[in-house]
Every structure is written in structure tokens, then in C-alpha cells.
């Protein structure tokens, strides 16, 4: 069975790599047809990408963006978790808060960028505000859904032992909402990466978004691609870390042999 799993994983990895190779190959062909300032050759993009990664002064911008993404996501996660718990236990709170969050969800990220620039001075606070406001509704609703999917049977069984609220939270609620939390992180990570770039593009003096703005001003397509790839790589690495955590935390789940 283990060999079968390994073969399946290898096959998936090969298919994914093949897809990327086809994409790179197509780009390379375009670079031969069109001028390099529009479609730079793949080796040049790769060398510029590596250059960012190994040059300390440039890597700082990548780390700055990563920090902003994590800061925003952590803030939204903490606030969203509290809101979800409050809404989950009170219908009145839900009636009050849920429409506000739904309203926020309808506001485009760019509008939040404009609001932040008008309202606040500090760059970091602006970015944090934008990140939280754009990811808070999704975190709240996803954690709330996970909380609401808690088994009534398990709740009654746990309550039969008369736990304190804290014990109930630790032993039942947390394990119940963990899968939902991990999914929320995966979904919001992609959203946050897109939003942070917009926020940095308009209102920051450092970070991947700021660097992208500079490449646009220099009309440097290879540079724009290199900085874009930094963000893509960052998202992919963090997604893999979350998947690894998910595999460990949800190891109790039965896996159908047919599905493998």
C-alpha cells in the first residue's frame, strides 16, 4: 500500500512539473517571437529570481511582505476566531455582526487601500488594517461554519461529564474547528498575498508590491516576473507547511483505500 501511495505521489509531482515545463516552454517561444522587454527569456527570469533570493537587500523586501501577510492573517484570525465564538453562542450577536461582515465582504480590496491611505499615516498600520479588513469576514465565517458543524452527539457526550467551559473548549471545540481553521488559512493565504501587493503598490515604500511598482516604472518585465515569482514561491511554501500541519493534525481520519 505504501509503495502504491509513493507511486501516486511521484506521478502527481511529475504531472505538476510537466505542466510547469509546458508553460515555461510556451513563454520561451513567445520570447523568441516578441521583444525581450515584453517577454524576457525564461533563463533571465530565473536568474533574476535567484538574484532576489540571494541578495540580502532585496530579500528584505520579500521578508517584509511575508511579515505583513502573516501579521494581517494572524490579526484577522484572532479577531475572526473571537467573533465566530461570540456569534456561535448568541443568535443576537449573529443578527448584529453577520450583516456587517457580509457588507465588508462586498467592499473591494482597492477601496480598503484608499480608505487606509486617507485615514492613516503609518505605512505598516495601513497595510495591517487593509489585510485584516479584507480577510476578517472569510476567517470569521469559516471558523463559524466549523464551530457549527460540531457534532451534537459528541457535545452531549462531553457534557455528560460536566466539563468547565474551558475544558469543553480544549477537548471538544478546538479539535472540531481545527480542520476548518486550516482550510481558512489556506484560502486566506492566497487572498492575503494578492491584497498585500495591492496595498504595497499604492501605499508602501518597501516590499514586493513596492518593487513591482519600481519594475513597472523601469519597464523591466524580467524584474516584474522575478518579484511576482517571489510571492508565488512564498505562497507555495506556506501552503506546503499548512498541508504538512494538516496531515499531522488530521492523521486520525480514515483514508479510503479506493481513493488512494
Amino acid at each position: 500500500m505504501m509503495t502504491m501511495m509513493k507511486n501516486t505521489r511521484t506521478m502527481r509531482a511529475l504531472q505538476a512539473a510537466a505542466g510547469m515545463i509546458v508553460l515555461a516552454f510556451g513563454w520561451q517561444i513567445l520570447s523568441m517571437i516578441f521583444p525581450h522587454y515584453l517577454f524576457p527569456p525564461v533563463p533571465e527570469i530565473i536568474s533574476r529570481t535567484v538574484e532576489v533570493l540571494i541578495t540580502g537587500s532585496l530579500l528584505v523586501d520579500v521578508l517584509l511582505t511575508a511579515g505583513r501577510i502573516f501579521g494581517g492573517l494572524l490579526g484577522a484570525f484572532a479577531l475572526g476566531g473571537i467573533l465566530a465564538m461570540v456569534i456561535g453562542q448568541s443568535r443576537t450577536a449573529e443578527n448584529f455582526v453577520a450583516p456587517i461582515l457580509t457588507f465588508f465582504q462586498g467592499i473591494p480590496a482597492l477601496s480598503w487601500v484608499v480608505f487606509a491611505i486617507i485615514w492613516f499615516h503609518g505605512i505598516e498600520f495601513r497595510v495591517l488594517f487593509i489585510m485584516i479588513m479584507t480577510t476578517l469576514p472569510a476567517f470569521t465565517f469559516q471558523i463559524l461554519d466549523a464551530f457549527r458543524s460540531m457534532s451534537k452527539d459528541l457535545f452531549e457526550m462531553t457534557m455528560s461529564f460536566r466539563p468547565s467551559r474551558w475544558t469543553l473548549f480544549r477537548f471538544l471545540i478546538v479539535p472540531t474547528i481545527v480542520p476548518g481553521i486550516l482550510t481558512a488559512w489556506k484560502v486566506n493565504l492566497g487572498n492575503a498575498a494578492r491584497v498585500v501587493v495591492v496595498a504595497e503598490l499604492v501605499g508602501a515604500t518597501g516590499g514586493v508590491g513596492y518593487q513591482l511598482l519600481r519594475q513597472q516604472q523601469l519597464f523591466d518585465m524580467a524584474g516584474a516576473m522575478a518579484w511576482t515569482l517571489q510571492l508565488v514561491l512564498f505562497v507555495l511554501v506556506v501552503q506546503q507547511v499548512i498541508t504538512a500541519i494538516e496531515n499531522w493534525a488530521l492523521r486520525y481520519r480514515a483514508v479510503s483505500e479506493r481513493a488512494m
Binding site: 462531553t158 475544558t167 471538544l172
Partner: peptide
């Protein structure tokens, strides 16, 4: 209960331990 109501994320031992941990 009618159905076992075991916590799927706990091993057999941890499920038996649940009540004792709560107490």
C-alpha cells in the same frame, strides 16, 4: 449512548481517558 460517540481524533485509550481528564 446508542452510538459509540467516540471522538475520532482520540485513540481508544484517549477516549477512555476523556472523562477522567475532565474530572
Amino acid at each position: 449512548f446508542q452510538n459509540d460517540r467516540l471522538m475520532p481524533w482520540r485513540t481508544a485509550l484517549d477516549n477512555v481517558l476523556l472523562g477522567l481528564q475532565i474530572l
